[in-house]
């Protein structure tokens, strides 16, 4: 980002123009799976923001439900109606509308929990890496112990202790998700603090807090982008598992996972659409996120190039 030459008459490219001309964008455009991944993710973002205005009913407004329309199959099957494309569940709820509202809850949980885990993990990682010593040892031992347990299991235990609820799901996910940031950030912080610019900042008498926030932090963030992207997908899956087991979100705020659980009870009677479609949407969402994550990893991690 060098300043333009004072005598140069060429217009200064805007930030956006620079982005479109960058190698990153060039690689992105040529990478089919990256484009596909971002289209899927954008589609979901569109669906959860605009979707509720487009679907025919609010599935959680009892007044809009019609029990006569219960268990209608998808529109293309015999007995289906064009009003309910993906069919209805036992309360006459439009499956598609439930999916739109459910995706919103799943995605919000994934994003908010990722933000929380990132904040907590990065803070602890910076502290551990910069100050070292006993604090470092304690934080990293906790991380080690936690990593020896699978996240789903840890989250399941936390939920069994807390009880169900959106806020509790978030706490459980943040508690299992911070470790990966803490370890990554600690590693890069250790490397960065050896470098001359940090030494220089120290010599110039800057307080530690400022060195960490202004000098170290910006230089340890890049690897986190990949971790954060993929974690949203992981969190959506863990939340779905918790809700499926009945220890996740409450029935009044059903995520995609809870929709699958509700549909599971009627699966054996052949009413497959109630549970199969929500699962298909989870798969699509997480697949899109993972495609994007894979691309970012290849681009941002120069070691792998």
């Amino acid at each position: 980002m060098a300043a333009p030459h004072p005598l140069s008459s060429a217009p200064v490219p805007s930030r956006l123009q620079r982005f479109f001309a960058s190698e990153f964008f060039h690689n992105y455009r040529r990478n089919l799976s990256a484009v596909l991944g971002s289209l899927i993710v954008l589609g979901f973002l569109f669906m959860v923001t605009i979707g509720p205005f487009l679907v025919s009913q609010n599935p959680y407004d009892v007044a809009q439900l019609d029990l006569m329309a219960a268990f209608k199959p998808p529109a293309w099957l015999a007995g289906g109606s064009s009003e309910f494309w993906l069919g209805t569940d036992g309360q006459g709820r439009d499956v598609l509308a439930s999916i739109v509202y459910g995706s919103r809850i799943s995605l919000i949980i994934g994003l908010v929990a990722m933000g929380g885990a990132c904040l907590l993990g990065t803070t602890l990682g910076l502290i551990a890496g910069f100050y070292g010593g006993r604090l470092d040892a304690i934080i990293m031992r906790i991380a080690d112990i936690q990593l020896s347990f699978p996240s789903v299991l840890t989250a399941l235990f936390l939920m069994s202790a807390f009880g169900t609820g959106l806020d509790k799901v978030l706490i459980a996910l943040i508690s299992v998700g911070w470790v990966v940031y803490a370890r990554t950030v600690r590693g890069s912080t250790l490397r960065e603090t050896q470098k001359e610019y940090v030494q220089a900042a120290r010599v110039s008498g800057l307080p530690n807090r400022k060195i960490i926030l202004r000098h170290v932090l910006p230089n340890v963030l890049t690897p986190l982008i990949v971790v954060a992207t993929i974690q949203v997908g992981t969190f959506v899956l863990i939340e779905a598992s918790l809700s499926f087991l009945g220890v996740g979100v409450p029935v009044t705020q059903p995520s995609l996972g809870l929709l699958i659980k509700n549909g599971f009870d009627v699966l054996f009677s052949g009413l497959w659409w109630v549970s199969i479609f929500p699962g298909l949407f989870i798969m699509l969402l997480v697949f899109g996120i993972n495609l994007l994550g894979d691309f970012l990893r290849d681009e941002l991690n120069p070691r792998l190039k």
Binding site: L237, A240, I260, M283, V286
Partner: peptide, 20 residues
């Protein structure tokens, strides 16, 4: 691509598809 799908799908849901 197949392995990415395998990572992305909820395992319990796959079990339900198999059951059905």
């Amino acid at each position: 691509a197949g392995s990415l799908v395998g990572i992305s799908l909820p395992g319990f849901w796959l079990g339900m598809v198999l059951i059905f």
